[in-house]
């Protein structure tokens, strides 16, 4: 590598390629909602958007040993357990549906999590699921 751009320059050829790869993984999973999250960081902290796309999606989501369904179920579990991540749950419940996880599987995962993280966090997650399901029904009906 002959480039003299610093490692943290998010627009270096290396980082740009990495981000583009991450964005392609992100769009496949989260659709345009995920892309919108990355884009929304452009004005306040583009490096943060780069980290989400390049590292979380480009590196982690694209790894072997756990398929797209497994990754979304794990993500729903951890977001539920953390509590206070309802906006992210909304994106990832949609993503779970995008990768073929059924509504029953989603509500079942949240019920399963309830035992480990307590009922309040799992209830909040379930209410987010209801909202996402209703939005899907609305857009399907249009």
């Amino acid at each position: 590598m002959t480039s003299t751009t610093p490692r943290h320059d998010i627009n270096s050829p290396d980082n740009l390629a990495r981000r583009r790869h991450g964005e392609s993984v992100l769009v496949k999973i989260d659709g345009h909602q995920g892309e919108a999250v990355v884009d929304s960081l452009a004005d306040i902290n583009p490096a943060f958007g780069h980290h989400v796309a390049a590292f979380v999606f480009g590196d982690i989501y694209d790894r072997p040993d756990l398929d797209a369904r497994g990754r979304q179920l794990v993500t729903l579990g951890v977001l539920t357990a953390l509590g206070g991540c309802e906006p992210q749950l909304k994106v990832h419940i949609g993503a779970a549906m995008n990768v073929g996880i059924s509504r029953t599987e989603i509500t079942e995962a949240l019920l399963h999590a309830a035992v480990f993280c307590g009922f309040p966090r799992a209830l909040n997650a379930t209410f987010v699921a209801r909202e996402v399901f209703a939005e899907r029904d609305d857009s399907a009906g249009k």
């Binding site: 497994g70 179920l73 794990v74 579990g77 539920t80 953390l82 599987e105 399963h112 480990f116």
Partner: peptide, 22 residues
């Protein structure tokens, strides 16, 4: 319960316990 197999239930359990620091 039906709906999730045991492997998947284990994945969710591991992730929740990690998040909680248990």
């Amino acid at each position: 319960r039906p709906g999730l197999d045991r492997k998947t239930r284990s994945c969710i359990t591991l992730t929740a316990l990690t998040a909680l620091g248990c």
